[in-house]
Amino acid sequence: MATPALKAIRQQFPDAEIVTIQRPYVADALDGLDLVDRTISLQNGQKLISRLGLLQQLRRERFDLSILFPNSFRSAWLSFLAGIPRRVGINRDGRRWLLTDALPAGDKQTPHPAIDEYLRIATFLVEEDQANARVSLPLSRTMELAVTDADRQRWKSFLDKQSTDFKSRPLVCLNPGGAFGGAKHWPVAHFGELAERIANELGRSVLVVCGPAEKNEALQIVEQANHPLVTSLAAEPLHLGLTKAAIQQAELLVTTDSGPRHFAAPFQVPVVTLFGPTHILWSETFYDRSLHLQLDLDCGPCQQRVCPLGHHRCMKDLRSDQVFRAVLSLLDQQQNKKAA
């Protein structure tokens, strides 16, 4: 969701070296794009000596400008300690005094799409120097991703192990799980029922993509579906590039509200997104080939990582037949577009 803002920043500062500070498990998402020049890894749970080493590295870099997409206190604190003279971000999480350029924050109770928040920061940087503006306003929301040659080889290696029948059919990807917490998970039994129907009734191949935390879930979905056209990436060396390559080749993606959901739009793949505890608008990307499914419950969306009432109805009561109808709807739309 940050790629539209990154593209605008690249265009506005064509001669600058642009460096991202990212957690290693998401750094591969930008591989193949020219939006950044290099990445500095921000490890989770670093020991004090490692944190000091990172801080010393950042100070040696002598950066001119820090653009803070996360709204966290930590990101602003790190930029401040690194001695970066300009620190631009949104005034949230009590960090106003750490920012040199603090953009006003909206009401916390009102959802603000992340893609628009990132674009707001990029727009500020363009507008403050209108005389040298290289980007047209308003900025585009179009997201970007790329698949590298190494990613294509990973995908080929996976396909080489599959049956001729699997490879000859259109592909539907399923993406379970979510780092946010258990409340975002759609039940394995529902995913299994959906996978079996897509394979059996629609004659599609079905691939369950996964990260390390979703391996067991992916295997259980395949077991539940019990169909030769349903398999997963769980046995492969997992890599974001492989997931990107798989979704790029898909006819459709069905996903929870998790990171790989956003791989669909850049590759123009239709996507059905299953929302439970999270408000749709926080991660809205305004993609025209998407359908959002969310039950209208009195208790939600609660934005909690674990269901505070213990019933998890927002996901359990979202049945596989409802999702199957959404799949049919998007596939019909695609067929009608091709026919037109």
Rank of each mutant, 00 (worst) to 15 (best):
T110K: 15
D107E: 13
N71H: 02
D101G: 14
Y118C: 14
T123P: 04
Q130Y: 00
F63K: 07
Q109T: 12
D64V: 11
A82L: 05
A102K: 04
W77Q: 11
R87N: 06
G89V: 02
A105T: 00
L137P: 11
F124L: 06
V88F: 04
H112A: 00
D101E: 05
D64R: 13
S66T: 05
L81V: 11
F73A: 01
L98A: 07
R96Q: 14
A122L: 11
R86T: 13
T100N: 06
G89P: 00
W77T: 14
I84W: 15
E128Q: 15
I67P: 01
W97C: 04
L78F: 02
R87K: 12
T123V: 09
L119E: 06
Y118D: 15
H112N: 00
P111C: 02
A114V: 13
V135T: 10
G83C: 08
N71F: 03
N71Q: 10
R86I: 06
S79D: 04
A105Q: 11
I67Q: 03
S79Y: 03
D64W: 12
T110N: 10
P113V: 07
L119W: 13
A105N: 12
F124E: 00
P70V: 06
I84L: 03
A102R: 02
R87W: 13
N91H: 08
T110Y: 03
A102L: 08
R74H: 15
R74F: 15
A82R: 01
A133F: 02
R96A: 13
F80P: 01
A102M: 05
L98K: 07
H112Q: 00
I121E: 02
E127Y: 14
Q130W: 00
H112C: 03
L99H: 06
I84C: 09
V88S: 07
H112S: 10
Y118W: 06
S66R: 02
Q130S: 14
I84E: 01
K108P: 12
I90H: 01
E128L: 12
F73L: 09
S66F: 14
A131I: 08
S79F: 01
N91G: 05
P104T: 11
G83M: 03
D101I: 05
G83V: 08
Y118R: 04
I90L: 09
D129W: 00
S136D: 08
N91Q: 04
L137Y: 07
Q130V: 13
P85A: 09
Q130A: 15
G83H: 09
F69C: 03
F69P: 07
F73W: 15
A102E: 07
Q109P: 08
D107G: 01
G106H: 07
S75H: 03
L65G: 09
T100F: 13
F124C: 07
R95K: 12
L68P: 01
P113Y: 11
P113A: 10
D93P: 00
D107Y: 07
Q109V: 12
V135L: 00
V126Q: 06
L99N: 09
